[in-house]
């Protein structure tokens, strides 16, 4: 049995009177990849944003490595260094170069020595094939390149979990593969623990150890990856998979 890294218990989230997440519970173990699937508006992004405190929630609890997470902003600031996140918007900080973007948080937030982080940044950039852009500004890069650097920027913090929120949803189709390849590598080579929101079904099928299928803020299915795609339990999930299979 591998070690539990993240556990969510009975999480409820409201926007005003409207309940966005209903009684969400799941457990994530070391090295596992959890994929959140479901139609738009089902609460996938809301859920993943709750997991590093970008959204608050009304009731329920999150446990990080067995410790209950105190949901105050100071504590989240600490914890976010261990929970990396990459967004759909592939935003880098426009006023910093690629290298400065990567160094910023490890050096200023984590207070690690700049030389050490720099060496690591260059190694990571090489890994994603972008070492020649080290001194470029974000506006000189394509969306796919920016997203790969955003992943590097998050990895440079040495996170224990990575959250990916529809990281390829706004990219040109040609750019998607490169980004997904990096995420796949992270799982297969580094055995990174990850939570992924995606609409790329083939990718999800390849990478998911566990699938949460959400609709209207409720978990309809919590199934091992392969099993979900082969034998979805609910009609809703079957319908969803059919509609995605064009």
């Amino acid at each position: 049995m591998t070690k539990e890294v993240l556990r969510v218990e009975h999480l409820n989230k409201f926007y005003g009177d409207w309940q966005a997440l209903h009684d969400i519970s799941f457990t994530l173990h070391q090295g596992e990849v959890l994929t959140l699937l479901g139609p738009s508006g089902s609460g996938k992004s809301t859920l993943i944003r709750c997991l590093n405190g970008l959204e608050d929630f009304k009731s329920g609890a999150i446990y990080f490595k067995g410790q209950k997470v105190e949901t105050n902003s100071k504590n989240w600031q600490e914890l976010r260094q261990k929970i990396g996140m990459v967004f759909q918007s592939y935003d880098l900080f426009p006023n910093f170069t690629v290298l400065e973007n990567i160094l910023l948080a490890p050096v200023k937030v984590q207070k690690r020595p700049e030389e050490e982080v720099k060496t690591e940044a260059l190694r990571l950039l090489k890994r994603v094939g972008l070492e020649k852009y080290v001194n470029s500004y974000p506006r000189e890069l394509s969306g796919g390149q920016k997203q790969r650097i955003a992943i590097v920027r998050a990895l440079a913090m040495h996170p224990e979990i990575m959250l990916f929120d529809e990281v390829t949803a706004s990219l040109d189709p040609e750019m998607v593969r490169g980004v997904l390849q990096i995420v796949t590598d992270l799982s297969q080579v580094d055995h990174m623990t990850m939570i992924i929101v995606t609409h790329e079904m083939n990718f999800a099928r390849q990478i998911a150890d566990q699938v949460l299928f959400l609709e209207n803020g409720k978990i309809l299915e919590n199934t091992p990856g392969e099993e979900f795609f082969k034998h979805p339990k609910t009609n809703r999930a079957r319908g969803f998979l059919t509609s995605m299979d064009f």
Binding site: N52, G53, L54, Q77, E78, R80, Q81, G84, M85, F87, S89, D91, L92, F93, P94, N95, F96, L104, A105, K108, V109, Q110, A150, R153, A154, M157
Partner: peptide, 27 residues
């Protein structure tokens, strides 16, 4: 300043002062 930039800064563990200095203020 785009809210996604603020999310980025927060997700990298920045506190309010660091967010102000490196993200909100320059942009």
């Amino acid at each position: 300043v785009n809210s996604s930039q603020i999310d980025d800064g927060k997700a990298l563990g920045m506190n309010n002062l660091q967010l102000a200095r490196y993200v909100v203020f320059p942009q």
